[in-house]
Design a protein around this nucleic acid. Sequence first.
DNA 1: ACTATCTAGTTGACACGTCAAGTTAGCGCC
DNA 2: GGCGCTAACTTGACGTGTCAACTAGATAGT
Lengths: 159, 159
Amino acid sequence: MSDPRWLNQRQEVAWRGLLTVLNRAFPEIERTLKAHGLLAVHYTILVALSEAPDRTIGLSALADAANLSPSRLTHRLRALVSRGDVTIASDPDDGRAKNATLTHQGFARLQEVAPLHVHDVQRLIFDHLDSGQQDALADALSTVAAALCEHPEFLNPQS
Amino acid sequence: MSDPRWLNQRQEVAWRGLLTVLNRAFPEIERTLKAHGLLAVHYTILVALSEAPDRTIGLSALADAANLSPSRLTHRLRALVSRGDVTIASDPDDGRAKNATLTHQGFARLQEVAPLHVHDVQRLIFDHLDSGQQDALADALSTVAAALCEHPEFLNPQS
DNA sequence: ACTATCTAGTTGACACGTCAAGTTAGCGCC
DNA sequence: GGCGCTAACTTGACGTGTCAACTAGATAGT
């Protein structure tokens, strides 16, 4: 802390842009999903499940795929399970582990909402960028994301 | 909705990167602030106030500068006011309006926390990017952010 | 002036996010 | 084979975020 590496100008611009996108676009995206009975977290969980082999995956792996803490996943799964979009079963090979499976109904719900969701993402984010900017954005963000995923030692508590 | 413009590959990569940064880096950043008695929202509010002339600004303008809904601003200001970091006074020229002012104490708190905060931002985001990527990120995100700010008609409710 | 409407900000209820603490099951060691 | 440690998840409490509904002051049309 003795030498506070202040953000330079372009970093300041990038950071504020990130905050603005975050605080303005995301709530709007969530509103669309909410209107169809889903939360953004729920949607992310359903997507991760739909991409797993047999649409089944262990809860830890699911939490990682959806960038969620274990407890947040547990809380959010409650609604999805009680509504019948997801089922949960104990893993026969490991008494501690559980597997979540996307039901037919859950997959149907995903298919129903996905078009609206991508429409929002296009409208709020990508429609404002040209092709080169989209490439650059994908490059930069995936680089940061990869670093964050590969070095979780920088992120502590996982409650 | 008849024609769901699905995300192409680079858009998919960019979008997932954004979600990952969001869900992994932000909680970590907030943790640091929390350890010093502030929330990320509080920090943003203090920053916006510190940049206003006389460190005073109307609540609507403050909400806009901090990308917050009016009600969220009201709720979060409560703690800052009761703690003495901010004062609020009615606007003499407009009976409806109120102005928020950053106190000396509030400014001191900001100066205390800012180095830790920027350290986190550097560590979690920019340390993973080279100079060109940082430029590109600033370009893309500021473009999107500007569009979102200039066309708030796309974002409704402002509760 | 009077009413309708819009703007500024507040409130309360309810659902979500986070953290610390707990339960249960595997794993390693001697 | 009992002991400690770690891993996989769950729980409950507490604070935050969101929305709809509200108060009150300005504005504008007639």
